[in-house]
Design a protein around this nucleic acid. Sequence first.
DNA 1: TATTGTTATACTCTATAACTATA
DNA 2: TATAGTTATAGAGTATAACAATA
Lengths: 176, 176
Amino acid sequence: MASQQKTSRKAAGTAAAIRRPRSHGANGAAPNGEAGDDIGLDALVGHAGYAVRRFQLWIFQDFIKTLATVDIRPTQYSVMTVIGANPGLSQMAVAKRLGIERARLVHLLDSLEDRDFVSRVPSATDRRSHALHLTARGKTALAQFKRLAAEHERHVAEKIGKENREHLLRILASFT
Amino acid sequence: MASQQKTSRKAAGTAAAIRRPRSHGANGAAPNGEAGDDIGLDALVGHAGYAVRRFQLWIFQDFIKTLATVDIRPTQYSVMTVIGANPGLSQMAVAKRLGIERARLVHLLDSLEDRDFVSRVPSATDRRSHALHLTARGKTALAQFKRLAAEHERHVAEKIGKENREHLLRILASFT
DNA sequence: TATTGTTATACTCTATAACTATA
DNA sequence: TATAGTTATAGAGTATAACAATA
């Protein structure tokens, strides 16, 4: 039931059906809730963070969908791309460059190593650290990922417009 | 140690010290890792998602920091703002409008109700649902949150520029 | 039958702390 | 003493599924 049990929680309330297909009770104006899409965001419309967050969720969902066949997520793609362009980097270097926690990178690399995309190779200069490299299989795979990622990027351009996408990249260049 | 234990994980590797303050070994050019900030992002620079993600993280961190004194996070702020502007909304309506899972909204509202900012009030029209309202305390609190959020928004404008912030809001308006 | 609020579970991500082996 | 990689844990956040009350 929708009753009380802990501290909060009272009971029952008002309808406010959303986007109902046909009839919806008795009155045609909706009780005191909202009729559908006219729920105002008030102060949120002036917050860049809100729009950026919703946009980021859309982008990541499209990326994940577009690369679903190869089962690669945005963070995995970014790690492989940076290693591919900078062979021999240490885990700390990759973590700092991409803003990932080094503890988390351990697990990311574990899964990429299990799939034979990346290898941690030893080196003589500092026996504490690993030099990261793409395997032969990893290099081939990354090339395919990049083609799919480019396709995803075209979806972004279609969504917000070619010019807007480019302007956006320029505005946010300092954050990369 | 940095050795093997499960499947992955080999051992030792290459340095690639980042932004080291003074000396860093023997050679002045860094082993085979990177010297500091010149780690190329390769394909990532052309991906809007990467820049947007980094920007979003920066914004949220600034928001959380700026509203730390009142212990309010972005999602809590968005929920209170929407309820404040649309009193009587059901949980489903709020969840759909903000793109939050209804299961997660339950916990969000629990904490806001525990702090006496929001109340779930019963209604006669649909005994399954709750009509959400801000309490008197919630209204006062939200007014303060909005002042702090406006301060945060000024930080954003300082960071990327007033014009750029406005252009960004226009570009992403369809995602709100 | 479908929907609302709720509970529960699992998996991702973030944030820390601590430990080992190195430097 | 500090750093690299690792392990472990706790808290958000996301994604689902299932259930009771109600429509």
